[in-house]
Design a binder for these strands. Structure first.
Lengths: 379, 379
DNA sequence: CTGTTAGCGCATTCAT
DNA sequence: ATGAATGCGCTAACAG
């Protein structure tokens, strides 16, 4: 296996006109490097106004910018943290990122954003790389992998905080959605709306703790409902978005199931053109609902349903999704919005505490989602 | 103004168990640092198999990872490049990013991703920061600002390549969509489809070259059409997405205009439920089309139209957009897809050439968009 | 083949 | 109040 780190270099770049160094500034200002360093670090009260002026002038004249690499090397810390994102294509990630950036800005940290693009190998490389750049900590939205590849972080390694998912065998702070509550919230909503069948659709969840928790909560909620004599039936479908063939198979299975339980066609529309009318056929609630475990799944389902039932697919089946992507409002599907910004923000705060030496036990921060009811599931 | 760079640090982090250095490895292997360095840099053929084995053992035992900061400091280059993104919320950016990442991976570069979040001040800070980290080059998807804030890059500074937009007064390579051809392509499509009115809707374009080019091409195409006796009328609407009040005002204006030209209501639907039926009322083509200059505009328009006309808004007005976000297929709107991945990839290639010392004149790389016709604009 | 030496740019004792 | 010296971790001559 070629483990050559990404950052391996050779000689120096061509043509770039070397930047001014602290030595240049010292010479230009007719003083020693120490004073320049003091000035840079804000110890200005210790400098005579006269010297200070000369330094400022020299810096301006040379357009001097201190070299962070060198500073970091000397001080032993560089204020860099790694932000490892599993999939930037998922709006969830971008939203979390915004919280991360805001918090970093507030705390004087600089996040190195790494995008694993759903590739385990990439994840491994980036972790490696972040380590070699001596980041002070990492925020990891891990792929669903075993602790092994996370070896360098957490525990004995550099501080880490997990986002959205736990990693088996890795003790570290985690912040994410309260998945149990969220799945339950959605399930209850669908039950209350009188759906007769609910399909919980989720990507393979063996590896991903958040997905596991969502399925489990759904099952639990359905069982409780069963126990109390409810008449709504729950089902689970696994959709492996990474495998087109498998997706096709699963969707075909879903189609058959839908055909089996679906009463007559529901193509009639009221003429009002009103959005509220979308999820309903002539005033009656659609009888089957799909509960997508996250936005990518929801999109896949919506696209399939549209292809199968045409533009009016929403009259045949309702759709509810955890995550609230921007197209949800347009499509009129019900969602459970995650407090993404706060998730990112808190993650950085946790990490910062660890970096500063906090020795408390690993903490979990579970934030609650918000149900946003739209036409798809409401009468 | 507080110009304190983000990366300013103070003392060293707490509790972190210092990592092994090259010196440690040398001692552990009972040899000098040079041999370790040689080993790290792949000059293995020069080492006796015996020494080499000892080194490998020592490295493994200490879990040694070379410090990139130090390497960079010594060599004068660190293989870091900056990727400054104006708005990660825009799917376009994420897609370009994927091309950038792939190219970086292929060329042994490490992109530092910086997200300006549409804030000019952020852009300035990040540029500053990237400079202090001595990145070897930057790829800039600039906000629509004057060259001033880009001062440190391009020309005399570090190599830069622009993505999507040109920056006034800044000579640098650029790669992006062939905006003229794209806007023309869309316009001709709409004309051919027999729309009587076309509104080109765009964000404020004075500052952003790509938007400018799109409007101009639209105008040009409409004028040509006028000249040849066509009967389609073109209009332009500016939508300032950054200002909610202004958006509301502009949309109200659009509403009035639509009411004025729109014939009777078009709420009837054929019963087929087929997607193709969406953009058409009883076999006739809708008479007015909106041409969104990019995806954010398209989304804003779609949401507004849905709110105003209800779920069946597409029967009243057609929508075409430059950019092809994932919801476009679901909504059934026609789009012009940009070769985003390639844009990112080429940008890195250009930058790499510059870093390696290419002295050619600034180049423009214009890639062509692909029209994807969907129900919204087709009969 | 291998080790010694001298910095890269900067922050930090420690003198003055 | 200021400067000289030392070394962060590493690479690149330059000797052996």
């Amino acid at each position: 296996m070629n483990d050559e780190p990404i950052g391996t270099t050779s000689s120096r770049p061509a043509g770039t006109p070397r930047r001014a160094t602290i030595t240049d500034v010292a010479r230009e200002a007719g003083t020693g490097k120490t004073s320049i360093s003091r000035y840079l670090n804000g110890e200005i009260s210790v400098l005579s106004p006269e010297l200070r002026a000369r330094i400022e002038a020299a810096i301006a004249r040379l357009d001097y910018q201190p070299n962070q690499m060198a500073r970091g090397l000397k001080r032993g810390r560089n204020r860099l943290i790694g932000m490892l994102v599993a999939d930037l294509t998922n709006p969830y990630s971008v939203e979390v990122l915004q919280g991360v950036e805001a918090a970093c800005h507030a705390l004087g940290l600089m996040p190195l954003i790494c995008h694993a693009a759903n590739e385990v190998e990439m994840e491994r490389r980036f972790l490696q790389l972040l380590t070699t750049y001596r980041v002070e900590g990492v925020i990891v939205n891990a792929l669903g992998v075993r602790e092994e590849t996370l070896r360098p972080v957490g525990g004995g390694g550099i501080p880490a905080v997990l986002v959205d998912r736990q990693v088996e065998g890795l003790v570290a702070d985690m912040v994410g959605l309260d998945n149990g509550a969220a799945a339950e919230l959605g399930t209850h909503h669908l039950i209350e709306q009188g759906f007769e069948h609910i399909w919980f659709v989720v990507q393979p969840f063996e590896q991903v703790s958040s997905r596991q928790l969502r399925v489990q909560a759904f099952d639990r909620a359905m069982h409780a409902h069963d126990g109390s004599g409810g008449h709504t039936r729950g089902h689970t479908l696994v959709l492996n978005l990474a495998d087109a063939a498998d997706v096709e198979r699963s969707l075909a299975e879903l189609d058959r199931a839908l055909d089996a339980v679906s009463g007559g066609a529901r193509d009639e529309l009221d003429g009002s053109g009103n959005a509220v009318a979308l999820g309903t056929g002539a005033g009656t609630t659609a009888r089957v609902a799909l509960f997508a475990a996250n936005a990518p799944v929801a999109l896949c389902l919506a696209l399939h349903l549209k292809a199968r039932y045409g533009a009016h697919w929403q009259t045949r089946v309702a759709l509810l999704s955890i995550d609230d992507p921007d197209w949800a409002e347009l499509a009129g599907i019900t969602t459970i919005r995650q407090p993404t910004y706060e998730i990112g923000y808190r993650a950085v705060e946790f990490l910062h505490e660890r970096i500063e030496g906090a020795k408390t036990n690993a903490r979990d921060c579970l934030l609650t989602g918000e149900l946003i009811v739209r036409a798809s599931t409401s009468r």
